[in-house]
């Protein structure tokens, strides 16, 4: 942590960057929040460590058209989101100085973060420099990322429906999942746009609120890097990441393994077409299984 902080202060001081996106301590011990630091004095509050779970990629959107470079500290999995935003032309690589920060797996007050139990690795997809140590390069014990999805797939359609109705019934529509999601980066979200036809339709039933999550999962399909922020921030502990992982699993099975935010290819399986692509009929066949 000290090395990152020191390096960031250096870069601020020598004018390489004009601001730093990082974390600062919140009210409790475990709730570190994303924060903006614009000079060395402010950097006193900068922290990095066990509770820096938040993915800072999305904050880059705000500074893309601002003067000068912005330093952003990204953990390995965060760099996937950053790369995906580059693919979508939402940020300009030249406007950012990326410090890749080694990660030993993040925590919250209850222990290890859910998203870190299915760690996607220690590789940095994008960086200007990497600051880590040997400890951070050790692979953390992995669970099967798709285990939860596989459980859901074993259910009957009715059981699955009931499961999601139950989970989503807790939703309070605080929009935290949407607001934190780096893929949910629309300048104007359809749910905030009266002309879109999906915004604030009279919630005749709570099913309309459920649809919010389903529409959101469709909107980020193929672009979601599985950063896990949606489930991390949900105050109601809804396992939203399972919706996204189901899409990812299906895409991997139908179109070959794919990780959003990796490599130079801007095309996702859903926005590219090859002659080998599964015929649409297979989707229905699988759906009935």
């Amino acid at each position: 942590m000290a090395r990152i902080k020191q390096r960031a202060i250096e870069l601020l001081s020598d004018g390489t960057v004009m601001r730093v996106i990082g974390w600062e301590k919140g009210e409790g011990n475990c709730d570190w929040s994303p924060a903006l630091f614009e000079n060395a004095a402010e950097m006193e509050n900068f922290v990095y460590g066990d509770y820096a779970g938040a993915n800072l990629s999305k904050y880059c959107l705000k500074f893309n058209r601002q003067e000068g470079k912005t330093l952003v500290v990204l953990k390995p999995c965060d760099t996937l989101s950053f790369r995906q935003l580059l693919h979508e032309h939402r940020i300009d690589r030249e406007k950012f100085y990326v410090i890749g920060a080694g990660c030993k797996g993040m925590k919250d007050e209850k222990g290890g973060l859910l998203k870190c139990s299915a760690c996607k690795g220690k590789e940095f997809e994008v960086y200007d420099e990497i600051i880590d140590d040997e400890e951070a390069q050790k692979t953390t014990a992995l669970m099967d990322r798709m285990a939860g999805v596989i459980e859901l797939e074993k259910m009957t359609a009715q059981e699955r429906f009931d499961f999601w109705r139950g989970e989503l019934s807790r939703c309070i529509r605080c929009n935290a999942c949407r607001n934190v999601c780096p893929a949910c980066s629309c300048i104007k979200c359809v749910f905030d746009n009266p002309a879109s036809g999906v915004q604030s339709k009279a919630p005749v039933t709570d099913f309309e609120e459920n649809m919010f999550h389903i529409i959101r999962a469709y909107h980020v399909a193929g672009r979601c890097t599985d950063c896990g922020e949606c489930s991390r921030v949900c105050p109601q502990n809804i396992p939203l990441h399972l919706l996204n992982r189901k899409f990812i699993k299906d895409m991997n099975e139908l179109y070959g393994d794919y990780q959003a935010g990796v490599g130079e290819n801007e095309r996702t399986p859903l926005t590219s077409y090859t002659k080998e692509d599964a015929e649409p009929g297979i989707v229905y066949e699988r759906g009935n299984a």
Binding site: H89, C186, K188, N193, S272, Y273
Partner: peptide, 21 residues
């Protein structure tokens, strides 16, 4: 224009190359 993110997804799916940025 007011809603467009400039994300290029439409350009990629357009089979006719009708979309530019």
């Amino acid at each position: 224009e007011l809603l467009c993110n400039g994300c290029s997804q439409c350009e990629k799916v357009c089979p006719y190359g009708a979309i530019t940025y």
